[in-house]
Design a protein around this nucleic acid. Structure first.
Lengths: 145, 145
DNA sequence: GGGAATATTCCC
DNA sequence: GGGAATATTCCC
């Protein structure tokens, strides 16, 4: 499996595009910038890690978990930056995935819900932490369903 | 060929069960009583017969058709007077029938909808015609789900 | 996209 | 039972 890390992978090595920097010390970085960098490239398995105890609307937590499912990466997955998601296979998504998580199989109904929570077409969604640990969802423009 | 109408078909004829009545005239009967008597003992297959062109809420027309299904008489059927319905097998009704017609399998959700349209527990419903051809649903007290 | 009607869930 | 929150459909 790809989860088995080989010894070579665990030993830090220099890369051509990442020169070793020993000095001077890193300049001051604002906290929110640090948090941006600390955000994992792939979102965690469950929103509970990000927002423990929060009462997220069911649609948002279900969508988040659904997008995070590794088995569905060919159909729907997080975008490159981990702050958006993309539906790669809208037909399969509508026919097979939606009914497993919602009471319908219509892309339009899914999009309608995204709109309700301030997302926009196309099927991308942004999730990021705020100071108050609230969840914000923002839309982008790329692709469609 | 069918364009030849036979003489026998065009001539009105007396039937054994329809004696010719010349006198005296039938006594006066109020219109609503006539309509009561004219209501068929078993409801028609579709509400369209009763309320042609009416825009009935989907829940009511689906429930009406569902109750009218002969195959479901062992699970749900019209009551003796044809103006109420009874769920004879709530378990089967919830598990097998509800998901075929609605997006859930919960008796409570079905009852909630009945309540919305002025029905009451238990699962009986009254459907009758008014002068304005509107539909009225009334609840009775007998049995439960 | 989103308003509005209808449906489903949740909870008192 | 029914108010209210959320979900789904319908339609502009």
């Amino acid at each position: 499996m790809d989860h088995h890390a080989r010894a070579a992978d665990m030993k830090p090595k220099l890369k051509d595009d990442e020169p070793l920097q020993l000095s001077p010390p890193a300049p001051f970085v604002p906290l929110d910038h640090l948090m941006q960098q600390q955000r994992p490239p792939l979102p965690p398995r469950s929103l509970d890690v990000l927002l423990p105890g929060s009462q997220l609307p069911p649609f948002l937590s279900k969508t988040y978990d659904l997008v995070s499912e590794p088995q569905l990466d060919g159909v729907i997955s997080w975008g490159p930056a981990g702050n958006s998601f993309v539906v790669w296979d809208p037909s399969t998504f509508a026919r097979d995935v939606l009914p497993q998580h919602f009471k319908h199989n219509n892309c339009s109904s899914f999009v309608r819900q995204l709109n309700t929570y301030s997302c926009r077409l196309p099927m991308e969604i942004s999730i990021r932490l705020l100071e108050c640990a609230a969840l914000v969802l923002e839309g982008f423009s790329q692709g469609s369903c």
